[in-house]
């Protein structure tokens, strides 16, 4: 079970990338089929610890993402469990046909970790800033598409996907995220997590936008507006049952994502509600390319803030 931390959410001490290296090292002690693969971003994702622990099951492929996906397919044909990491745009956009066909269509088993979710690519700018990766991956039949909410969730999800055959895309922030859950929390893929109840409106959020949603809910509460918050880390399969229930129990659903509002969480929620009378508003990147800047600047620039969520809720209630 996932348990929301009691204290006010704050940045975790532990970086997401640290969890990746540590959890995978641990898992690879037990599971001899795990292979970690990098395309020359080992330094960025800090997997040296894993490499030192399991040098025989670590491959730094070189700067060739398309080939890395095909290589993963071949490893999977032989029953191995490849974990492939690169920056989100290269893991999806650049090598899309390889992921789509050699892994997805071929029915193979691979775990793709796409790092630097949305604006967290920060100073790497527009070339490295994925606002479309979730959308692309959702279009692959049978793929599982997840966005990590904090390092506690990431640890649990890595353990789960190791033992689940299929193509998984796991979108992460590389560095520190706000810690939402108590250590040891368990998560169920396909089930959204209600963090806060509220009958006026509900915010369905992913990734860094969950902390913004909690802030917005807190602020609005002071004004007597009760806003629920749901962590929808499982974008595919989406928790459609929960989304439909929320559409019935509240007047307004606001989605909040660090991604283009086309193709991502907002689209998925709208699709789930095609037969349910409802009002849905999407907060996210409004069909724009990325750019360089510190994360707080980018958050303002693309209106990925609690302030924007509050504005949208007030305007639509």
């Amino acid at each position: 079970m996932s348990i929301l931390l009691k204290q006010v959410p704050a940045l975790a001490k532990e970086e997401m990338r640290k969890v990746y290296s540590n959890t995978m090292s641990e898992l690879a002690n037990e599971n001899k089929n795990i292979v970690l693969m990098e395309a020359d971003l080992m330094g960025a994702i800090a997997t040296k610890g894993y490499m030192d622990a399991h040098p025989d099951r670590f491959i730094n492929v070189g700067i060739m993402e398309q080939h890395m996906m095909g290589l993963a397919a071949g490893l999977s044909v032989r029953g191995m469990v490849p974990f492939v990491h690169t920056f989100g745009p290269f893991a999806t956009r650049r090598s899309y046909d390889q992921v789509f066909l050699s892994l997805g269509y071929a029915g193979l088993n691979a775990k793709i970790i796409g790092s630097d979710a949305g604006i967290s690519a920060s100073h790497n700018g527009g070339t490295h800033m994925p606002f479309e990766d979730i959308g692309l991956m959702r279009l692959i039949p049978n793929a599982t598409v997840l966005e990590m909410s904090d390092h506690v969730m990431f640890d649990d999800v890595l353990k789960q996907v190791t033992d689940t055959y299929g193509l998984h895309y796991i979108r992460i922030v590389r560095k520190n995220m706000v810690q939402l859950y108590e250590a040891g929390s368990k998560f169920e893929i396909g089930k959204g997590i209600t963090l806060r109840e509220g009958n006026d409106a509900v915010i369905i959020a992913t990734g860094i936008m969950i902390a913004e949603a909690l802030k917005a809910s807190e602020e609005l509460k002071k004004e007597g507006i009760n806003v629920g918050v749901v962590d929808m880390f499982t974008i595919k399969p989406l928790d459609t049952k929960l989304v439909k229930e929320l559409a019935k129990s509240t007047k307004l659903i606001v989605t909040a994502e660090n991604h283009n509002i086309i193709g991502g969480l907002g689209s998925a929620v709208l699709e789930a509600l095609e037969d349910v009378p409802s009002k849905v508003k999407r907060v996210g990147v409004n069909d724009l390319f990325g750019q360089v800047g510190p994360q707080d600047f980018l958050q303002e620039e693309y209106k990925l803030t609690s302030k924007e969520i509050i504005r949208v809720i007030k305007e639509n209630l």
Partner: peptide, 12 residues
Amino acid sequence: QGLSAAVGIAQA
């Protein structure tokens, strides 16, 4: 794409 997959099988 097949060449990469073949290389992956050989690597495995």
